[in-house]
Design a binder for these strands. Structure first.
Lengths: 340, 340
DNA sequence: AAAAAAATGACAACCGGTTGACAATTTTGG
DNA sequence: CCAAAATTGTCAACCGGTTGTCATTTTTTT
């Protein structure tokens, strides 16, 4: 059926050993033979069976990536950059969409171990820590805490929470709401909300923390949810939430006749395109998506190659950046102030 | 190093054959032995080496997916649903992001062949048709034409173009612009633009077709581009473009003081979340993202299992749906008309 | 022409499973 | 207790490569 190294050897009129030597650049080979073999490989459309190679080498150059939702803009971007860095380093990506389902995550974890991937990047967390520590493979956690032996890479959510809080304070918010993701387990990103809350308290500002009541990522749900919030909370003048949610809040606010940022200031988090798509470009705390991907992959590859310079449980935090859009400072009213 | 079937056999006090029998449900095995072996597997944290199994079975249950951009919302969704259907059928996904780069696409195509995937889904097209026909593996094209032997699954772009045109006509547009994607090669989606143009012509409506001058997918670029269009074209009253672009057009139009849909009607294409995020929810032609994924995977699996009922070069078209948002019919002005 | 170096081949073991054939042992039923 | 059935084991071949050893052939050098 499939073309094997034997067929190539036969066609090129040489031994299997010679073909293998050529494939792996070992021993000495004459130009003539090399050419003959290459021609044979082309004519036969030969591709070395990586299963056999990998089995022998005990190495697959395969990395598994487990995410909670492929289609969420943030993860989609992470996947893109992670795949890019992996590709640059000769690795390929086995993508696993856990969909926040612990059955699936377990299956994937098992599958990845069976498939002898060289390492795993996990950006999901629906299992007990034990499930992760039992995995006998290099693992790096992306924006999750998976146990004392697994390094975490995340953005500096503490800084992010502080920046967001300060931006709302600087723009005179007095009654703010922050919306957190659905909280099954503690993740690095929770830090931004505790810090946000703390800073608000220290400044004597009324701050309420709400938790998304579901674990889905649908904009339609966010709109419904935003609607509820405005129905149940009066005189809010500041909001802090992930970009998608913030975008929904802005849209609903405006449709309810509120002036943004006049009546209501909004700060998003993530820095994804949703922040640009809304009517008023969101002021947002941008995560370093590219850097996160790069650092995660590099950390994993270092562990794989045994060159890791970090302690097992390191937490690498990458700096975030406040991008000022149109939802915290009103350019026009700013001018008016100047003109007075 | 790694735990093998031999270790399990040793620990369970039985032969390798027995363990293999248990793993594959062959022969007759006593409950006692079965239990012993399962215990041993658990205690050793054993995972059968899929490389060895796959090598023997000549089957990997791996499917490669080549997309032009993982982070584009449409593809991100397709990936999500494709992965889901694959997973339901016991297949895993090797994700390849071609990034519209023919070098990368070639590498991926070779890699997938080396890795003996069971089949490939291709949603990219930067190579000669020959490159695809040479691949000796089941292939299905998603929204691309890759040659006479490769089936294509796409949405019914003809219907889509017609629906979009009709919507603008029904709302009295007289001077419309449609914006097409960057055109390297003909794809099924081009059809919607030729049909759109035809319908407009037949109705005596001025219709200009513009092509995105770049092959990137960045919202920031779309904004710049939209700005240019408005600078160079006066009195446009209708626009047809992909959701992302349409969203940018809407945003720029509004910032230039235009009334949407009063002065300008917009119809998007895709039905992704961008259509909901804009200030006025886009009227859009929604592609059946889930159905596309399902059909693509099912078609591929049928070819893999040799049960395909289609001709090799079939083109399966799935119906689209017009979702009326707020960018073609103004609810308020609609009411006003009624009240007169 | 002889010696040294380069090129190639033959062969076997291995990676970690699967599988078929056949034998040996244990269990079960009458 | 014996025959039949069920269970388990041994062994070898195979999947498609890689690699080390040793031998043989060809080419190059002096």
């Amino acid at each position: 059926m499939a073309v094997t190294i034997k067929d190539v050897a036969a066609k090129a009129g040489c031994s299997v050993t010679t073909v293998s030597r050529i494939l792996n650049n070992r021993g000495s080979i004459s130009e003539k033979t090399r050419k003959k073999v290459h021609t044979a490989m082309e004519e036969l459309n030969y591709f070395p069976n990586q299963l056999a190679v990998n089995l022998f080498r005990q190495r697959t150059y395969l990395v598994g990536l487990i995410v909670p939702d492929v289609s969420h803009a943030f993860y989609a971007l992470e996947i893109k950059y992670i795949e890019r860095v992996l590709h640059e380093n000769g690795y390929r990506l086995l993508l696993c969409n856990a969909e926040s389902d612990n059955m699936r995550e377990t299956e994937y974890l098992n599958m990845l171990q069976s498939n002898k991937v060289d390492g795993i990047i996990i950006a999901s967390h629906t299992l007990d820590l034990e499930a992760y520590s039992k995995v006998n493979l290099p693992i790096v956690a992306l924006d999750r805490f998976l146990g004392p032996d697994i390094p975490t890479v995340s953005s500096d959510h503490e800084q992010g929470g502080r920046l967001a809080a300060q931006e709302l304070i600087d723009n005179n918010c007095k009654k703010v709401i922050q919306i957190t993701g659905f909280c099954g387990v503690p993740t690095p990103s929770h830090k931004r909300h505790t810090v946000f809350s703390d800073v608000m308290k220290k400044n004597g500002i009324c701050c309420e923390t709400l938790e998304l009541p579901f674990n889905a990522f649908s904009f339609r749900d966010y709109i419904t949810y935003a609607d509820n919030i405005f129905r149940n909370h009066n005189h809010i003048d500041g909001i802090f939430a992930a970009d998608n949610v913030a975008c929904a809040m802005e849209k609903v606010a405006i449709s309810r006749g509120l002036n943004v940022p006049g009546d209501l200031k909004i700060v998003g988090y993530d820095g994804i395109e949703a922040s640009l798509m809304s009517y008023k470009t969101l002021t947002t705390v941008a995560q370093p998506v590219k850097q996160l991907a790069l650092t995660t992959v590099v950390t994993l590859l270092e562990i794989i190659s045994g060159e890791s310079v970090f302690d097992k449980g390191t937490h690498i935090r990458l700096p975030v950046r406040l991008i000022r859009g149109e939802t915290t400072v009103d350019t026009k009213s700013g001018n008016e102030v100047l003109q007075q």
